[in-house]
Nucleic acid binder design. Structure first.
Lengths: 336, 336
DNA sequence: GGTTCAATTCGAAGCGCTTCGACGCTGCGG
DNA sequence: CCGCAGCGTCGAAGCGCTTCGAATTGAACC
């Protein structure tokens, strides 16, 4: 491997000059720059990442903790990951991927100076990783919103607003008895940030608009979906509006509604809270509120890099949810 | 941040001794080791990754190129990724994730000594990344099988055997007219390694057992699935055996068969080639040949680390596919 | 008692890069 | 005509670690 010395020799300059050509931190005359650039090209020189990190205490690597927990749809996770990697690359950074949900991993890559910054996904209300994060030298961005975000940067879809939006949409269409088919029970039990928030928003709107609002967590399996739908219709047979926040269960919820004779959107309306591509990939294209994973991942990178640069304070950003009407919602049947 | 010097001072030894305690490359007496370990713990010392990489030319990072191409199911990709990360961590390595499918990315991380080794996913028959790979200093493992694997390490499910196995299973059940519902056309057009191989195996068995074997690529959408099923039944209305190699289309293929009055498994049998969890998550639990993504990812790590260690030669490993009978296949109706 | 040898530990030389202070040069104003 | 300010470049120090050869010590042996 060629070193910076080799390049310097080939170009007839000193190593520091080559370094300045590369970094642009001091001005270099046109001719000199040309010679150096040519030498770099001829030798196919690449700076040694370790040496660079050692000398500059910058790695140009962002750590991404994307825990693969039961109950969360990996396809959705992958969208966030894609957003992070894409945006990071655009800013000349690489991504180190952590999938184990251990605070130790954070500690290791941060204290070992493997990364300049860290992005953490799938945050819980009282996430045990948060204290660790607070102690790190590197800036951090959470994707999700913990109970106490003070001093932390966070970004996410405004899931509480999404919960309100879904319920309002159903209410606007005349539905009086509505239900939220939620994520799997274990996701709720962990108090996963987004799950709690959707719930809160949904309940809030139900209360304000005097809707009968039922909530049922739902395993991401055909049986789980059947059981959830059955439970809801058992408790409140008059339920006509459904909000579903569970990608994997979605097709089976729809199927079960059909089996109950509640055709969509004729006899029942369904609003999905999921990435647009899964909403449109169902048998009936679903009215949905998008979870823009790639966008959020990208924003997370922007935020973390901003904090690396200047002395930006921590901030939280919640993206406004948008509902797109498709074929799964309509006016309440008896009202039609 | 504490440095190795700080630890050495605290323990009353030299820096090199601390280094040897950490690496175990020379014997250290019990008492000394104790003191050093205690100092490390007290100072919460972590070696600086960059410094270590510079001095040892080892990063303990594996590069993983997981391109997110259209037509490939991200959930499946994620299984491979999970396997890689998990196994890598078990061997004290981290994973740098590349999602852009550019040979330049490989070049960059390899030539810049950011990684010790590279694993490449989603290989095509004549993958343009292969020449680059051959030129790298770092060992490489492909997940997939290119046309000419000479000198490269490869690992994958034996998709050709899987194609044969699926067709044989249908033939054994008495089906004489069978069809392969394949991946999306763009995946086929790229000559994605696994797609080509399944096709070859499927056709091979059809020929040898005198089956009428149809093949139809399939977009991963409801419409695509409908179109594919319709096309097959249009060309060969007597088709009763289906092999589906397309996770996203699976539910819609099943639905369309029902719509044609071909109930599964009564009037049509379906063998899926997909991860077990997607096979069991369908409305009818599907007889399937598993794609063991996590296992393959793990093996890829084992292979690449083996080559880092000794002077192992390149080798190819194809895992034998296994078919699990579930509720979607049965004897041909007219034979029953 | 002198040697030899093994077991431990130390010191120093880098690994390849960044960065800071310094230096030589040119062109300007006084 | 001299001094001074910039500009462009260089040299050297150091980032924190690994690793090799060498030094030290104590035990074992003759």
């Amino acid at each position: 491997m060629a070193t910076i010395e080799d390049v310097a020799r080939a170009a007839g300059v000193s190593a520091s000059t080559v370094s300045y050509v590369l970094s642009g931190k001091r001005s270099i005359s046109g001719p000199t720059r040309k010679r150096v650039e040519q030498a770099i090209a001829e030798l196919n020189y690449r700076p040694h990442a370790g040496a660079r990190a050692l000398a500059s205490s910058r790695t140009n690597v962002i750590g991404l903790m994307a825990p693969l927990r039961s109950g969360v749809d990996v396809a959705v996770i992958m969208q966030f990951v894609t957003g992070v990697v894409t945006r990071a690359r655009a800013a000349d950074h690489d991504v180190l991927l952590l999938t184990q949900d251990d605070a130790g991993g954070l500690e290791r890559v941060a204290a070992g100076s493997m990364v300049d910054a860290i992005i953490v996904m799938d945050v819980e209300a009282d996430d045990p990783r948060i204290p660790v994060l607070r102690g790190l030298r590197q800036p951090t961005v959470l994707i999700g919103l913990p109970r106490d975000p003070a001093g932390l940067s966070c970004v996410d879809l405004d899931f509480e607003a999404a919960g309100r939006l879904g319920a309002s949409h159903l209410a606007d269409a005349g539905h009086r008895e509505v239900a939220l088919v939620g994520p799997p029970p274990e996701v709720m039990a962990r108090h996963t940030s987004y799950a709690d928030r959707v719930l809160r928003g949904f309940r809030h709107t139900c209360a304000h608009r005097s809707l009968a609002g039922d909530v049922e967590p739902c395993e991401a399996t055909p049986e789980g979906a059947r059981a959830a739908v059955d439970a809801i219709l058992d408790r409140a047979p008059g339920t006509t509006g459904f909000m579903v926040h569970n990608e994997r269960a979605l097709p089976h919820v729809l199927a079960r509604l059909e089996q109950h004779g509640r055709s969509v959107p004729g006899a029942a309306s369904v609003v999905a809270l999921c990435p647009t591509d899964v909403a449109t990939a169902q048998a009936v294209p679903l009215t949905s509120i998008d979870i823009p994973g790639e966008v959020i991942g990208g924003v997370a990178v922007d935020m973390v890099l901003a904090r690396l640069g200047g002395e930006q304070p921590a901030e939280s950003r919640l993206l406004t949810p948008e509902l797109t009407q498709r074929a799964s919602t309509g006016p309440r049947a008896s009202a039609a």
